[in-house]
């Protein structure tokens, strides 16, 4: 039966998808770059967390403090060394380079970690739950959703209340004029990708603690992230959260009807939104 329980689980799952999508949305908003390796970078971060937890014997939440700065550096370097070279009016080079990167990352992870399923252990938190009155919900899904809201609030604050955010917005609007004002687009882009990788690491933490992962699951995460961004409308972070929730609810409702329909239901919800509102629910940017 589809009850309040199913819907709430779906909403909370949507928080995870919004976390997947926030980094994608941020990078697209600033440099109009769609990173096809985004899903694989989430998986890379999950493996990084796994290595840190096993090597240093830390819990996954503490490991985040080690892995996130490392991912920032990876993102910064990737943007600076590779992606900045392919930005431009032609969309082909960035698409093909990030697609190649996706294949490279997947196979490097396969080589390093085999295709065994792995999981981040969060101890008693994994099974803890609270009674919300209408339904019992897990503490981890609640924390995932809360983190998604916190990440979006933090990104909004960064964008509209800080000097760096002003530089982001200026570069997004007009990189040439921004560079006349002393903003260096190349380094702004690198910082933006670095920040996106911080968000990716948080997403990876919740991906790895709530379910198994292996090197091949990246592309599917990219698709969910992309659907959340498009449903929400380009350039709107709260829209992205709404988009994630719609995909999440569609999936849990689909799964409640027939387990085979879980993923398909999410895709169909996406196509339905695309049919009715091609520019998403809360469009801000024009691509």
């Amino acid at each position: 039966m589809i009850g309040a329980d199913t819907i709430i689980q779906g909403v909370l799952l949507g928080g995870l998808y919004a976390l997947f999508a926030a980094g994608l949305s941020l990078v697209f908003g600033i440099m109009r770059l769609v990173n096809l390796a985004h899903g694989d970078l989430i998986v890379l971060a999950a493996y990084l967390l796994l290595v840190v937890t096993t090597a240093l014997g830390l819990g996954p939440f503490v490991a985040l403090l080690v892995a996130a700065p490392a991912m920032f550096v990876i993102g910064w370097t990737l943007q600076r060394v590779v992606l900045n070279r392919v930005l431009g009016p032609d969309i082909l080079p960035p698409l093909l380079v990030t697609f190649g990167l996706s294949v490279v990352l997947q196979n490097a992870l396969l080589e390093g970690f085999t295709n065994d399923s792995r999981r981040l252990r969060a101890g008693p938190l994994e099974t803890a739950s609270v009674d919300l009155g209408v339904a019992m919900v897990g503490v981890m899904p609640l924390m995932t959703f809360a983190s998604a809201v916190a990440v979006i609030l933090a990104l909004q604050w960064l964008f509209y209340r800080t000097e760096l955010g002003r530089a982001f917005r200026a570069t997004s609007d007009d990189p040439v004029t921004a560079s006349l004002m002393g903003v260096k687009p190349a380094s702004i882009f690198a910082t933006a990708t670095g920040i996106a990788m911080l968000v990716v690491t948080i997403a990876a933490l919740f991906l790895g603690t709530r379910a198994n992962f292996d090197p091949t699951i990246g592309p599917a995460r990219l698709i969910y992230a992309f659907q959340a961004v498009i449903i929400g409308g380009l350039g709107s972070l709260w829209g992205t959260l709404a988009g994630g929730v719609i995909i999440g609810v569609a999936q849990t409702v689909g799964a409640a009807i027939n387990p085979e329909w879980q993923i398909l239901a999410g895709h169909i919800a996406f196509l339905a939104v695309l049919l009715i509102r091609p520019r998403g629910l809360f469009p801000r940017a024009v691509d």
Binding site: V34, L36, L95, P219, I223, F226
Partner: peptide, 14 residues
Amino acid sequence: GAYFAIGTWVVAEV
């Protein structure tokens, strides 16, 4: 552009 690329991928998955 890029969103077209992922859109075709979604259709393939469906």
